[in-house]
Design a protein around this nucleic acid. Structure first.
Lengths: 140, 140
DNA sequence: TAATTATATTTCGAATTCGAAATAATTACA
DNA sequence: TGTAATTATTTCGAATTCGAAATATAATTA
């Protein structure tokens, strides 16, 4: 059949899923990049800028901008590291944490509602295949 | 385990795959949106702007811009439809077609090289799961 | 046929994204 | 130790992306 079908359906699935997430998160005045940073900090307490970059999919040149916006919105604080003065440590503010306490469960449920069209086994195979693809595309 | 693992690996797989494609196509001075339009026209001969939009993932507000660039680059022509004067018909120029004759097989091979980490069966399951997810996220 | 609704496309303004180069601090190593 | 290489982050400028509103034409309906 069509040799590119897999990439086509992957791109489509990503796009509609990403849009569902984007629309959901937009209700709280956040975009996907911002949410990614908040999510990373929500789970890790403290992270350097580099630490966040390693967790999310936003390139460093965009990250400064994203972080600046989050600081301006009052959701995170940014402090120069004592040990390594090149580095800046990020942390949620109380407001940021409260926001995530509110949003995160809804976000998670929203995604689960979508993914629950898959049965358990199917989801596991999917995960494995996607991990393989992720690695495989890096080697190019 | 982690309930969000599936979306995480999906986003990662998409990102690295998309970057591989982007870098590949960038060699020819095209971005992903532009390539999507050329690809649609490469297979369909003629399409209206709407026809293209229905095939690719670019929203209409961005499409005008993408099309304008492709016209300026000399890869497509755009002509008002006789039947329906709201509509504009797009078509590859000879230059555009030659370009695609050159690029498309390489692009296809590039993607197959990445996807061939999957065995046949795995790829089929993946496709099915992704189609389900695509539909499921639209219903939100 | 006039008025209404629907469809195709563009415009607008603003936000986001990117790669490449710059800056600043740290580490390696000759 | 001094110089080079590496790492963390930002800046810059330009391109791309988006949603919402506008425009223009076509189809529907009263």
């Amino acid at each position: 059949m069509n040799e590119l079908k897999t990439i086509t359906v992957l791109f489509r699935a990503y796009n509609s899923l990403e849009k569902a997430v984007r629309d959901d998160i937009a209700k709280y005045g956040l975009n996907t990049s911002e949410f990614g940073v908040l999510e990373a900090l929500y789970h890790k307490e403290k992270l350097s800028v580099k630490g966040v970059i390693d967790k999310v999919l936003t390139p460093n040149s965009s990250m400064s901008y994203v972080i600046e916006n989050l600081v301006n919105k009052g959701y995170i604080i940014k402090k120069q590291s004592e040990k390594d003065k090149r580095s800046y440590v990020l942390e949620l503010t109380l407001v940021g944490r409260n926001l995530m306490d509110e949003i995160f469960p809804l976000h998670k449920q929203n995604i689960r509602d979508i993914l629950n069209v898959l049965d358990k086994e199917e989801e596991v195979v999917l995960q494995k295949a996607l991990v393989k693809i992720g690695k495989s595309s890096l080697r190019k």
